[in-house]
Design a protein around this nucleic acid. Sequence first.
DNA 1: AAAATT
DNA 2: ATTTTGA
DNA 3: AGAAAC
Length: 881
Amino acid sequence: MFIALIGVDHKTLEWTQKYLQEVHGFILLQVCCDSQKEKTANDTKYFNSTATMIDYATERWQNNFVTPSLDSSSSVDFDLFLRRPFTLLVAVETTLANMMQNMQSIGHKNGHSFTINQFADFYDTTYKARRDKISQAHINIFNPYTNEQDYISLLHSVNLLDEQRLRPNWDTYFMELADLASQRSNCMKRRVGAVLTQDKRIVSTGYNGTPKGLTNCTQGGCPRCNNGVEQGFAECLCLHAEENALLEAGRTRIGDSAVLYCNTCPCLGCAIKIVQTGIKEVVYNQAYRVDDKTAQLFENATVSCFFTNFFTLIFTIYPLLTHLNLKRPTNNLMKQPPSDKSTTDDDSTQSSDEHDNPDDPDNKDDDSEATLSESEMVGEKRKRRSGSGSRSGSGRIVEEGIIYNHDIRFISFSFNPSIELVGAATKLGLTVTSDLTSSDLIIYESCQVELTQLSHPDNSVCQHWITDSAAANTTLPICLYNLNTSYDPNAFEDPALDIQPDSTSKYACWRTHPLVSPNEELVDALRVLKQDRIARDEKWNALAYTRALSMVKSFPHRIRSKDDILLSVPASDDEEDAASAASTYKHPRTPTKPVKNIGDKKIKAKIEEWLNYGRVYEAEKIRGSDMHSIYHSLYSIQGIGPKKAFELSRSGVRSVDELVDNGKITQDDATLAQHLNNSISRDEVERIANYVMGHARSLLAHPSYAICGGFRRAKPMSNDIDIIITQHGASVAQLNHFLVALTDSLQSTGFLTKLMRQVSLCVASNRRKEDHDYQSTMLGVVESSRKFGTSEGEHPQYRRLDVIVAKPASFHLEILSWTGSVMYERDLRSYVRRHKLKLNASSVYNDTTDEELDLSLVRSERHLLRVLRLPWIAPQYRNCD
DNA sequence: AAAATT
DNA sequence: ATTTTGA
DNA sequence: AGAAAC
């Protein structure tokens, strides 16, 4: 074996060379000019050219040789070198920090200092010169260590002497040929290649594309594939690579020992054909969406199906794993393995400074400190952690970076991972382990995860997370990949990190509002007054009533005296005492302060009236009036808001039917309004959402979704169905296309009967700077029937359906926004605005600089609220209206 | 109608 | 006394 | 363009 080393970092190259010489007895050969010979040691052989060096090695092929390329003057002709069958090109690289340090230490020895600019110059020229060859290497070894011993153990596990690398085995050989065939693919969707062999001889090859004589798929020949979103196979005109290979071979040339190599797992249709032709062995190296079904079919037909498992990258990970295991940081999300305790400091301090002193929501003087952008927060967290020095040497092990934010280091696969996957994992700085119990994250092949079997299901995601994250070169929000059918946006985060709610705050988003208040009669009276003010077009007056009723709703106890609506203020500075005093409305200790949002003049008087007489006169009067009920029936019609409803009811309109007779509205509008007045059971909401998601899944590979609105706030009955859908890694264009396709799909089955509004996501660059709205929604009416569990009997029921397609990064913000309630949302925005942030359903941006914050690292609704410095109130306690 | 700001 | 109150 | 409705 003859190894040529290539790289940029002197030390890593030197260590590798030394290792080969000393541990494996490699002989050092070098091409160089005469002047350099004197400097080096005398057990080195020198040659004037690559050709003479190779000839020398060829004659002594039983020996192992190594040639370094330590500096740019080294003139090994790699093309010539690689022509020989016993040669191996090994690239070694290290971190920039290591390289810089190594260069500085060399500079020190020679007595001159070294600037970062000089380093950059050196790196640029040297790396560029060698870049091509580095990418051609048989093995790429990345050295993350500064310590020679660690690196040697890594090298050792790579097993450089493995003869397999010099000559591929049959499987690798045919698989690479299949890859080559895939290059001829003319299908817009995917490059697939296949090689059919019989007794290690190629019978035929195939790639996918449109049939002979038709326009190539790449020229627009197949309408289905040229359509952005995934759609049914039925309309596809492309032949699959496997089909082509089988057709080319013909039934008679396929014998008993035929093996089909495909670079992608065959689809179900191909699998059927494969079984029928009598092929008994299939080898593939990339997973596809239908793997499970195909595997099942092959199993039933006794066809063996192999997932080729190449060896290279696994090796470079193993030593990292063993090394890290000892120094793994503690993590409050994870169970702590026993061996860790001695080597890591307690991490609990971190949780306390995470929510240090949730700023008093009513205190406005600490703006400067409270305004914290997401990027700042992440940066601060990182600094805090590494700067605290609490973790012994953790900074040295893995480059601190992206993965740090998620506290995930150890992952394991519940299946045999492909090279790409393992490679992707390493690119992210992750360590692959086979031990499911000690891994931070378990990757499942299928997205249909059986969560019950897992010890920590919250940290399991589907494999796409890794590949997508690697493609994006950052860790994508894990929650989006945490898929199963009932994605729970509440979960995942540690409740200990939550900011605590404050029931004395004037902001509804700081208080908890139960579904049903102990003061429900009072709340009801205030609601009537609010409705009345809306009808009178006294919008802001109505808002004041909404605020007051929301304040009353957050009282956990029944209000018995007017002292109850004064809050006790802590007598001492004792914090625990303060918290308990604030959260329970005990009879006040002095001093007291008035409840927010309930003014001295009007609303307080109403409440006192209720306390004294058990009713609010004005509310009773409004409730009793005819106009009130007519107003409500008119108000429920599409196109009639508070203003028109009030106008009409005042002008003597007695019923909805009257309007129909007058021709002011159609009969359809009237019946629709009646249908929409009926509330929907939770069961039905879920079934309708499932139905919609069934359509969504035929258009998107791995959609994540959440049902929001009243349903999420745990209301027993909902007014409509709100579904937020996203797809990790999807672009705005894809999501727009998806929404249109979903609408078409729902319309074509007759389920969606009326489309009220369809808005597409905006592309940022085309918009004015101040426009931060990226909402993509479909508001419509669907026809629900008994199969969805309507309680209204045989007749179909019309239901309002809102589908919101969110950008992956703003998924949790959309969930927060579409969960409500109205008062909660209003105060949420109001509160963050005090803290110089502006918030809408799809983005957060700085109110003054207008710069949008990057939310792609936000991993749950809880996390988002923490970033906004707000408490996370469980959805069932957000019923503020 | 209430609270913040001028 | 005037302005703000969600998007 | 602005109001109303959602």
